[in-house]
């Protein structure tokens, strides 16, 4: 009788350990999936900003990739009030912080285009090198589009 109890005790102990082990693995795997989804969503938002018609350089209806028109950028920035951000761009950019920085020629210039931060939430940072086109002077500056996406 005592032996059977001992065997059953060990058996249930093992099942218990197995269950704890399985639960931990499931938790890790779920964290990994969440992190992957966050990465993919951040790529999506970065692509949306890069190809935003409101910002893209174009000449005679021909779009140049990887280029932001400074006139369009300044115009959009002035119009993007917090209300418009919320009403018209939340579906596009969700919870993110989008900044465009001119690195060369100096002085460094910075435009915060969209700001909708989710405090205490994990975030992913994606920098994308871009050209900044000055249509008045017909010159290109070197810049970086920085997107911080919050889950």
């Amino acid at each position: 009788m005592a032996e059977t109890i001992a065997v059953l005790f060990i058996f249930f102990l093992m099942i218990g350990f197995g269950f704890i082990f399985y639960a931990r693995i499931q938790r890790t795997s779920m964290q990994e999936t969440t992190s992957n989804n966050l990465d993919l969503e951040s790529i999506e938002v970065t692509q949306r900003v890069s190809f935003l018609p409101e910002l893209q350089c174009s000449s005679k209806n021909v779009i140049s990739d990887n280029c932001i028109d400074l006139l369009k950028l300044n115009s959009l920035k002035n119009r993007l009030t917090p209300e418009i951000q919320q009403q018209m761009y939340f579906d596009v950019f969700k919870y993110s912080n989008i900044t465009i920085i001119q690195l060369y020629p100096l002085p460094e210039k910075r435009w915060t285009l969209y700001e909708n931060i989710k405090v205490d939430s994990p975030s992913v940072f994606t920098p994308v090198p871009i050209s900044l086109y000055n249509a008045t002077a017909k010159t290109y500056a070197f810049g970086v589009l920085e997107v911080r996406f919050y889950s």
């Binding site: 990887n66 090198p129 050209s131 010159t139 290109y140 070197f142």
Partner: peptide, 18 residues
Amino acid sequence: FTESQKASNLLNSLLKTN
């Protein structure tokens, strides 16, 4: 994605810069 985009965008933008 980011590394490949970084490399190609960086080079394209760099060569265009005045």
